[in-house]
């Protein structure tokens, strides 16, 4: 063992392993708790609702009413007057920063957390 690793090598390996473990905790354990859902329609924010209260609501869009469900701190499209139902198929949103939209009806959802996170940055 001494032949393979010097004392400095061993210290380094210990330190680096610790650093990597810490990075896992720091980056993957970051607070992404979802608190609220923002509902947008035709380019305007219609309402912001807490995810803690379960409810069903309909939001008027360009084509008609989109039905949105908030349940177990998740938000999802239940139904929308579009043809392909991509918004419904997207499923439930549960992490801060997640979004989904029904483009034909121009209704979208956005989950907010404690810190606003960017969904994209361009230069």
């Amino acid at each position: 063992m001494r032949d393979w690793l010097t004392k400095a090598d061993m210290l380094l390996l210990l330190f680096v392993t610790g650093l990597v473990v810490w990075l896992y905790v720091a980056i993957w354990g970051a607070d992404t708790a979802a608190l609220e859902v923002e509902i947008w329609s035709r380019g305007e924010r219609v309402q912001t609702l807490p995810l803690a209260e379960d409810r069903l609501l309909s939001v008027a869009g360009v084509l008609g009413d989109s039905h949105i469900e908030i349940k177990h701190a998740e938000a999802r499209f239940v139904d929308s007057p579009c043809s392909n139902k991509l918004c419904v198929l997207h499923g439930a949103l549960r992490h801060a920063g997640e979004t989904t939209a029904c483009l034909p009806n121009q209704v979208s959802l956005r989950i907010l957390g404690r810190d606003p996170r960017y969904d994209a940055i361009n230069f």
């Binding site: 393979w4 690793l5 010097t6 004392k7 400095a8 090598d9």
Partner: peptide
């Protein structure tokens, strides 16, 4: 103080 493994990891 470092050996080949140390340098390589760094």
């Amino acid at each position: 103080g470092f050996g080949p493994v140390g340098y390589s990891v760094l």
